[in-house]
């Protein structure tokens, strides 16, 4: 498996849009994989894009007045409404293009937010925008807690992770709930395209964004975005940590096109144990072997379900 990844890597830069649509000088933490994911997403989207961003790390680090890191049209309004703002931009552009008030080119509208802005406070606006069928992409950059406000738990925080509002303590494991399965909720909306992605797999991520871009209608990409600051891991490990999340099945890469499931080719046939993913991260350091085993069981079961879906809900041609 590793060989395939390496071969992909060999060709990587030649396959990637050279244009940087989020400029250097942004103020993301050193080793931020979320801004890396945003950078890669922009490369896949290209210039004919409008982005509506929620409040959060990516907004704060990129738009300090009177400067901006963005090279594409970009709007930020509030925390919980990126999807609603994007839906309005889409409706506005559609009307203006139809009436010949703007140049006649196809522009893709993208909503983006973190896990809190997507899975918690922005959940309703996202559900509404997806249900209404706007021609837009929504990308959740999931770093598994409210990192911008100081590592508080969200519904995207995984079981057992220690955060500042669900800290590990003498009588607490840290996060006591299982991570909300947001991609499945999006699948349940019956939208044409849902995918999970991770910047540690740049070509897979870029391909998925390009796919979403090519679809007329709503699509959702859930991008696992490693956060060295919040996960209490060294900055140089961000990309390798994402790889481990995928290789352990903690964050499987797959896509669902019109209800048909497909595991990404990057997914290994045999998963690594979750403890290899937990070990380098300070947020999981307190977990006992029993607790890790409990999480391992859940990961195995959930991955099994996904494999079954991919087996039984695949397209006829495959």
């Amino acid at each position: 498996m590793m060989n395939i990844v390496e071969n992909f890597d060999l060709f990587a830069p030649r396959l990637i849009n050279k244009q940087e649509l989020i400029s250097s000088g942004h103020r993301a933490c050193s080793g931020c994989a979320e801004v890396l994911a945003v950078r890669l997403m922009c490369k896949a989207l290209g210039e004919n894009t409008v982005i509506a961003s929620a409040t959060g790390c990516m907004e704060i680090i990129s738009s300090m007045f009177p400067t901006t890191a963005w090279q594409v049209p970009w709007i930020h309004v509030a925390f919980e409404n990126a999807a609603a703002v994007a839906s309005g931009v889409e409706a506005g552009l559609k009307a203006l293009r139809k009436k010949g008030k703007i140049d006649d080119r196809y522009v893709k509208v993208v909503g983006m937010a973190g896990d809190g802005g997507t899975m918690d406070i922005g959940f309703q606006a996202l559900s509404g925008a997806m249900e209404r069928g706007h021609d837009m992409i929504y990308v959740c950059f999931d770093n598994e807690a409210y990192m911008n406000t100081g590592i508080q738990r969200s519904s995207g925080t995984p079981m057992g992770a220690s955060t500042t509002t669900a800290p590990a303590g003498k009588v607490s494991i840290g996060q006591k709930t299982w991570k909300k399965n947001m991609p499945e909720i999006m699948v349940a909306h019956g939208i044409p395209y849902v995918a999970t992605a991770c910047p540690s797999y740049p070509l897979d991520f870029i391909r998925k964004v390009e796919k979403a871009k090519s679809i007329q209608g709503p699509s959702y990409i859930h991008c696992f975005s490693m956060c060295p600051t919040g996960w209490r891991s060294p900055s140089h490990t961000a990309v390798s940590m994402g790889r481990l999340a995928v290789e352990t099945g903690v964050f499987p890469l797959y896509e669902v096109e019109n209800g048909h499931y497909r595991l990404s080719p990057d997914m290994p046939k045999k998963l690594k144990p979750v403890k290899s993913y937990f070990k380098p991260q300070g947020r999981f350091r307190h977990l006992t072997p029993d607790q890790i085993e409990m999480i391992q069981e859940k990961v195995t079961v959930e991955f099994g379900k996904l494999v079954e879906k991919a087996k039984f809900l695949k397209t006829g041609n495959e």
Binding site: S23, S24, G25, M64, P66, T68, A69, W70
Partner: peptide, 22 residues
């Protein structure tokens, strides 16, 4: 100030040199 505080120089964040963090 520009009306509505619209920033119309794309990529102007590059004025800020983050290399000093290193």
């Amino acid at each position: 100030l520009p009306i509505g505080c619209v920033v119309s120089e794309p990529g102007s964040a590059s004025e800020y040199h983050t290399g000093s963090w290193r």
